[in-house]
Nucleic acid binder design. Structure first.
Length: 592
RNA sequence: GCCUUGGUAGCUCAGUUGGAUAGAGCAACGGUUUUCUAAACCGUGGGUCAGGGGUUCGAAUCCCUUCCAGGGUACCA
């Protein structure tokens, strides 16, 4: 039982004793005492007033007196308007530090027996990854790690969009204009090479459209009639019928892309337990359509197309199977959801997909519920906002994208320049330097993207480099390195401090902040947002730096108990920074 | 049109189930190093929380409405 629970219980008791009333638990409102007032825990007494039938001030005074008498740790109180500020004994906080925070299991959760799948990344194999994908990958990875940290068994999966008309476009362009170019012959990374032909297709396609428009066709007609698009559609049909030449070409080019993605994923530090490929799953879902028809969930229109009517749920009618019997996107997704569940039997399944698909997932989940899938209630769309440039949206075909590989390289280079300019790497081996530049560059990038609430859109200005100072990854990394250096110099060994030691205001504040780590992990997982964890870690780092500047050099401290206590505080801080940053996918260096 | 998500300092963002005088960072200005790493610390200035109305003891937070921006809108994924 922690102090908050203790006080909550005592508060309810106090209301019973003093006013003979039952205070509902949800009327108990505790918060941290603001820095300008005495005390650490504050009770907001307004909710109690209608039970006490006294003024807020009088009620607060009653309650304060009662709590001081009945709760051992409450050593004093003061009342400011309707706020009852409680002073908690230093001994309580010291004990918290020496027992709970110092315990090796602090900040870890026992397995909770729940299984959760996180699907993320889900790239198309016709172009390289860009900044939008980077956000997706980092978000998916860190959500998965966050859930692991909370005791879930997690499966990370990647559903690769490796087939379809857009894939045929780059294949066709390569066939026509590639002259047999390969990653080896061109020195281009495979995904970039394929992306190049996707762009070429689009350029040539536009030329044809323009020509047809000159000849008097409307835009719409021209788009439909252009020879290139017809050829691409033919190629798709050939692929679907298993045409050997097309399938071989498809395998070859996809192979290039996978080699390229492997490099990008490694750079981003993300991984997957299982890959699903749409070329395997695109025919799934038709059985579920039959199932839905027989259950009366779906209905057939005269032309043979199958629909679901969701107007009663505030949505529209939605097509689930074309009149010619072919699938649409949602057909596949119904089938794939079933497949994933059959494979893993997970309690929860999270789709990390951009907010442009909000409607799609709303419909998908509703359909699965109506089909009577008991597991449908565990489905969650982790929707995130687009990454925009100052000029607006990124568009692959127009070349206005921030390429993932370029960005990573730039970040590492910037880290190198800044680090060398600060003269921080004297005495580092080449390997150590390289690792450090990578870790700092990626730390800056990852923190920059993850500190923002997922659902908010994100503005990225390529002209303005990502910061390395202030509320940034490198700031937190630096704080960690500094603490490690301190602990090494002090030959630190973890040990509780038995004797009574003094506690400064900052140290007390630190203990309170550090003790919140587990609940921060829990609420970040519950809200599916690494952003709150990122911001918490920043608070922790900032608090440590303040402490570090305030106290005299710890190493030279002669009072052994005080020295040990300050090292303990530093060590707990470093531990939280390291494990929290790891959940964000960020490595904190020992030295920097 | 309809649905949906946003709008907080010059810029980028925090802001718990509604709680005290709305906070950080960057940028600007000033200060701190014979003391454990100055990617740090301390200070100054900067706000009609998009506008209006409502509920409440109390609203950036909840409700209504207007404006602005993004996304979606039935056989693309």
């Amino acid at each position: 039982m922690n102090i908050e629970q203790n006080i909550s219980a005592a508060l309810i008791q106090a209301v019973k004793q003093l006013y003979d009333q039952d205070l509902p638990e949800n009327q108990v409102s505790l918060q941290d005492t603001r820095a300008e007032f005495e005390g650490q825990i504050t009770i907001v007494v307004f909710p109690v007033v209608r039970f006490s039938k006294k003024s807020p001030e009088a009620t607060a005074a009653d309650l304060g007196t009662y709590l001081q008498e009945h709760v051992a740790q409450v050593t004093g109180f003061n009342v400011v308007k309707g706020f009852l500020n409680l002073s908690i004994a230093d001994s309580y906080w010291l004990n918290l530090l020496n027992s709970t925070l110092l315990d090796a299991s602090f900040g870890t959760f026992k397995p909770n027996g729940q299984k959760v799948m996180v699907e993320y990344s889900s790239p198309n194999t016709n172009k390289p990854l860009h900044l939008g994908h980077v956000r997706n990958n980092l978000l998916g990875y860190s959500i998965a790690e966050l859930l692991k940290a909370n005791g879930y068994e997690v499966f990370k999966v990647n559903l690769v969009n490796d087939r379809g008309i857009h894939i045929c476009k780059s294949m066709l362009a390569w066939q026509k204009w590639g002259n047999g170019e390969t990653p080896e012959s061109s020195g281009l990374k495979g995904d970039h090479l394929v992306g190049k032909y996707y762009v070429i297709f689009d350029k040539e396609y536009k030329k044809e459209i323009d020509a047809l428009k000159q000849a008097g066709q409307t835009e719409e007609e021209a788009k439909k009639n252009a020879p290139l698009i017809k050829e691409a559609q033919q190629m798709l049909l050939a692929w679907e019928s298993g045409d050997n030449t097309v399938v071989e070409l498809w395998k070859k080019m996809n192979g290039w892309v996978y080699d390229g993605f492997a490099v990008s994923y490694k750079n981003l530090g993300v991984d997957f337990d299982k890959y699903y490929y749409e070329s395997d799953t695109y025919l799934l879902g038709k059985d579920n359509i039959e199932e839905g028809l027989s259950k009366g969930v779906f209905f057939k229109k005269p032309d043979g197309s199958v629909w679901i009517d969701l107007t009663a749920d505030g949505l529209d009618q939605k097509l689930v199977l074309r009149a010619d019997g072919t699938s649409v996107y949602i057909t596949q997704d119904i089938g794939t959801a079933q497949l994933k569940y059959d494979d893993f039997k997970m309690d929860q399944s999270i789709y990390v997909v951009g907010n442009e698909q909000d409607y799609h997932f709303k419909v998908l989940f509703l359909i699965l519920q109506k089909l009577g899938k008991t597991w449908a209630k565990g489905l969650y769309h982790l929707s995130y906002g687009m990454v925009d440039l100052p000029s607006g949206k990124m568009k692959s075909r127009e070349g206005t994208v921030v390429d993932a590989d370029d960005l990573v390289a730039e970040m590492v280079e910037t880290a190198k320049q800044k680090t060398e300019a600060l003269g921080k790497v004297d005495g580092f081996s080449e390997e150590e330097k390289e690792a450090l530049f990578y870790n700092i560059g990626m730390g800056a990038l990852k923190y920059f993207l993850l500190k923002v609430e997922p659902k908010k859109r994100l503005l990225f200005d390529p002209a303005e480099s990502i910061d390395f100072q202030g509320n940034t990854g490198p700031f937190i990394q630096y704080t960690h390195a500094r603490i490690r250096s301190l602990l090494n110099k002090a030959a630190y060994a973890s040990a509780p401090v038995k004797e009574n030691t003094a506690l400064s205001a900052t140290e007390l504040e630190m203990i309170i902040l550090l003790s919140k780590y587990p609940s921060e992990l829990a609420s970040a997982a519950k809200g599916y947002t690494p952003a709150t964890l990122a911001n918490y870690l920043y608070e922790v780092a900032k608090m440590f730096n303040k402490f570090y500047h305030e106290v005299p050099p710890i190493i030279k401290e002669e009072d052994a108990g005080l020295k040990q206590q300050r090292l303990n505080l530093s060590s707990v801080t470093a531990g939280i920074l390291k494990s929290g940053m790891r959940i964000l996918g960020i490595t904190v260096p020992e030295r920097m």
